[in-house]
């Protein structure tokens, strides 16, 4: 897939855990102002790819460029990235408001803050309670608030709607669409294919640490001649397995 002016360019990315290759020469470009879903079965390398983008995991080789600048060890480059981890676990005795204050403090003054989700999730009262007393769903809402808070140009959302009730899930999906309309780039992972079908413009499918497909969602369904994303992905996975057994 050729992407003109990508926000993120990944070239020849490799990562091994011990002797196990997790990412094998992954090269992909993420289009600016679109929602890209990273898909793949468990162990395909999705989480590792995301963690390398965020600087949580060190890469063995390859290049990553964010907005044309190589992403290295310099933490200041992460100011442009917002991250919503899959599991929302925070210091138990702090309140949500203190958590927000902490991140604002750490990022320093000057950032434009987007507190929109606090109102839309009706979180006001819950933010004054210790985080240990909040339900899993409410903590996930706080998690979403933190990701969008600093109006980042690139948002990485790992299973964003997991644990959210339908109303909150709808609010978050609306927010994702609105941010895309504003020109933000979003990368997300999810196990719910219907949700990705609803939100994603582009798909990156990883299988065994390699990019199996990268391109617009409609190209994927057209190419596989399947009616849904789930069936299209299943077909590509079958094809890969068949190719693998033939090669063996």
């Amino acid at each position: 897939m050729i992407v003109i002016d990508p926000i993120l360019r990944i070239d020849g990315l490799t990562k091994r855990f011990g002797t196990l290759p997790v990412l094998q020469h992954v090269s992909v470009a993420i289009a600016r102002g679109r929602v890209t879903a990273i898909l793949g079965p468990n162990g395909a390398g999705k989480t590792t790819l995301i963690k390398i983008l965020l600087g949580l995991t060190r890469r063995d080789g390859g290049l990553i460029e964010l907005d044309g600048q190589p992403l290295g060890d310099d933490p200041s480059a992460r100011a442009a990235i917002g991250y919503m981890p899959q599991i929302a676990r925070f210091p138990e005795n702090l309140t949500g408001a203190e958590l927000v204050e902490m991140l604002v403090d750490l990022r320093g003054p000057g950032a434009t803050l987007d507190r929109d989700l606090i109102d839309r999730f009706r979180l006001g009262g819950d933010l004054t309670k210790p985080l240990r007393t909040l339900s899993g769903g409410t903590r996930q809402k706080v998690n979403a608030v933190l990701a969008f808070l600093f109006t980042p140009t690139l948002l990485v959302l790992d299973e964003p709607t997991a644990g959210l009730d339908p109303v909150a899930s709808g609010v978050l999906k609306d927010k994702i669409r609105e941010e895309r309309e504003r020109g933000k780039t979003l990368i997300l992972t999810s196990h719910v294919m219907s949700e990705l079908e609803e939100l994603a413009d582009d798909i990156v499918l990883l299988l065994d640490g390699r990019v199996r497909f990268a391109g617009p969602l409609r190209d994927l369904t057209a190419r596989t001649k399947q009616i849904s994303l789930e069936r299209a992905v299943a077909q590509l996975m079958r094809e890969a397995t068949d190719a693998g057994s033939e090669a063996a």
Binding site: L54, G55, L56, P75, S76, A77, R78, A79, I81, Y83, P85, I87, A88, R89, F90, P91, E92, L103, L106, R107, L146
Partner: peptide
């Protein structure tokens, strides 16, 4: 161990390790 996920969230912020 309990702070593992939160540590990851902090590592994703623009601050040094």
């Amino acid at each position: 161990y309990n702070a593992r996920e939160f540590t990851e969230l902090l590592l994703a912020q623009p601050i040094g390790r």
